[in-house]
Nucleic acid binder design. Structure first.
Length: 560
RNA sequence: AGGGGUAUAGCCAAACGGUAAGGCAACGGCCUCUGACGCCGUCAUCUCUUGGUUCGAAUCCAGGUACCCCUGCCA
């Protein structure tokens, strides 16, 4: 555990304080939370925060966390989303055990409770149209007025509601409403809609229902049925809390859950709304929901972010109630911290230029051992090969070096990582003056260390790959999807901030031979270049494709 | 006749009337066969603001200010 994780792990937040007190006072004997997505899209990094909070709290306090699909609006929901949500939660490292639930499994109970409310004179069937309901609702500063249908008899309401269920009426013709207070300053208490007619099949319960409960009528009661003790949601549900409690107060529910709200995650340089993400997919701006540049869990998974790094990130950013913007670089830093520990090192040349070692015999090949991790000998080593012709990165050569550049230049020398010190003796150019090949000489006595035969220390160490042994691969370098820190700030079309250089595809990269048989899941550090993993969709044994997960920190190029 | 929230460093964030944790970033320096990693050090006389209570206030009280959420038959 790094010091940052330690600090974060011990750091307090208001939810832990509440649970701690509830447990100590005996209000609850154990904690039960739930992660309740609607299966209407793919999960993103913002959901990861909620997943980590809910499952994390349950884990920390020895309770349990349910996975519950809040599937009350079949018009938007699909089995595909149910499957992908389960997969993403598992990928993140959480397990709901036996506790997989669907709000729709409670539809009959919810219906009975609606009937109960009607019998109590606390709900009525509304015949007003949607537009009329809106007009009657009033505004933020003016009270609403009561519907003429508000005073229908219990008998008529019961009859109409059962006929709604039976499918007698077309969509949109009637709704069931709670009779609360049309003058409440809280809009959600102005006779909220409980049920609407929807002749739409449901992904989980099929075509059993023609009416479906609204979120507000389902959520709290479902929490109560499942025995949820702490129902944790985001801040925008705060104004629904009085309604959440109104249902619990007016219905014979088996338990009394409490709702608590936290601030949702905002990340810089990306967009998080489902609508915008969907638009990027539809427009073809990205290759799909799992494009490695997307903030979706499917995307960062494909990109290669380790789930443990995402968990560490969620722990690090904390839980509060103030609107906050987290810089993506913090997420990236968590990814680096994780990968630095676990990723085996390898050498790969991304923008190859040939270096011919003139004093090395043609046809000779020397096998060398390279450590897989500089600080972890237990991770072993692999063979690399030194030959007369090698590839080095074009970025590691400057004909006339700028101040502070300590890589290769004509007349200069560098250490070839895990190999020899080599001195550049010249650059070959084509007619246009482009450098096409470098020549150099090696020092046979310089295998160990970075000191020359005469005791000088070379400043630069660069990576390289034997030309005779290299395997060619495609490498995709990703950058932020947007060039602005908050592309979805109001007023301006977020698409105008799209970063045209968010992906760069390099087709002729030269990798060391050990990478030819690389495991598809293994994440590597290509030394000095960053962390990489094979693209799980596009990489094949004969045609390798690597994704750059994240760069290394680089003070040299950021300073320039 | 509006209501409900939130303000602590560049970004997060702790503190629960006892004298401003921690992380990220930044800036110095050390180490290094990755300009990586690691290590050492610096970084709020002060908590949006104005008053008040108190021996003592980021914490309590009163008044301002800024931002967020709420007028779906979405969740």
């Amino acid at each position: 555990m790094t010091s940052s994780e330690q600090a974060a792990a011990t750091s307090n937040n208001f939810l832990k304080t509440i649970i701690d007190e509830d447990l100590k006072s005996g209000k609850h004997s154990s904690v039960v939370t739930r992660f309740p997505p609607e299966p209407n899209g793919y999960l993103h990094i913002g959901h990861a925060k909620s997943i980590c909070i809910n499952f994390g709290l349950a884990r920390e306090f020895g309770g349990r966390c349910h996975l519950r699909f809040d599937d009350t609006n079949p018009a938007k929901e699909e089995q595909e989303y149910i499957d992908s949500i389960k997969e993403s939660v598992r990928w993140l490292g959480f397990d709901w055990g036996e506790h997989l639930y669907y709000a729709s499994d409670n539809f009959e109970q919810l219906y009975q409770w609606a009937v109960y409310l009607i019998e109590q004179g606390k709900a009525y069937v509304e015949d007003l149209s949607g537009d009329e309901i809106r007009a009657y609702r009033g505004t933020l500063t003016e009270p609403g007025k009561e519907s003429p249908f508000r005073s229908r008899s219990v008998e008529e309401n019961l009859d109409l509601f059962s006929r709604m269920r039976a499918g007698e009426f077309p969509d949109g013709t009637r709704v069931l409403r709670a009779k609360i207070d049309m003058a409440s300053p809280n809009m959600s208490l102005r006779d909220p809609v409980l049920y609407r007619i929807l002749h739409v099949p449901h992904p989980h319960v099929g075509d059993a229902w023609k009416i479906y409960p609204m979120y507000d009528f389902a959520h709290g009661q479902t929490d109560a049925i499942e025995g949820i003790t702490h129902s944790i949601c985001t801040l925008e549900f705060e104004s629904h809390k009085p309604l959440y409690e109104w249902f619990l107060d007016n219905l014979p529910v088996p338990a009394r859950p409490r709702q608590y709200e936290f601030a949702r995650l905002n990340l810089t340089y990306t967009v998080m709304s489902k609508r915008k993400l969907q638009e990027l997919v539809q427009l073809g701006t990205v290759s799909g929901w799992d494009d490695p540049r997307m903030p979706t869990l499917a995307g960062i998974r494909r990109r290669g972010y380790p789930p443990a790094a995402v968990r560490a990130f969620c722990e690090l950013i904390g839980v509060g109630r103030s609107d906050s913007w987290i810089d993506v670089s913090i997420l990236e830093e968590c990814v680096r911290a994780d990968l630095n520990e676990s990723a085996p090192r390898a050498m790969a040349v991304l923008r190859p230029i040939k270096l011919v070692i003139d004093n090395y015999p043609a046809g000779q090949s020397e096998e060398m051992q390279a450590a897989n991790h500089p600080q972890k000998p237990e991770m072993g080593s692999r063979s690399i090969y030194f030959t007369r012709e090698i590839w080095i990165d074009a970025d590691d050569f400057m004909e006339t070096p700028s101040k502070g550049f300590h890589r290769l230049s004509v007349g200069g020398e560098v250490k070839l990582r895990n190999g020899y010190i080599v001195k550049c003796t010249g650059a070959v150019k084509d007619e246009q003056g482009n450098i096409v090949e470098l020549h150099g000489e090696y020092d046979p006595a310089s295998r160990e260390g970075i000191h020359t035969a005469d005791g000088r220390k070379v400043k630069g160490v660069i990576h390289w790959v034997s030309a005779a042994h290299a395997v060619t691969a495609e490498v995709r370098l990703f950058d932020r999807l947007f060039s602005d820190p908050s592309p979805d700030r109001g007023g301006i079309d977020y698409k105008q901030f799209l970063n045209p250089g968010s992906v760069e595809t390099l087709l002729e990269c030269k990798l060391e031979t050990s990478l030819a048989g690389a495991d598809i899941e293994t994440r590597y550090q290509f030394e000095r270049m960053g962390y990489f993993r094979q693209d799980p969709k596009d990489s094949q044994p004969g045609k390798l494709v690597f994704n750059r997960i994240v760069t290394l920190r680089d003070v040299w190029t950021t300073k320039k």
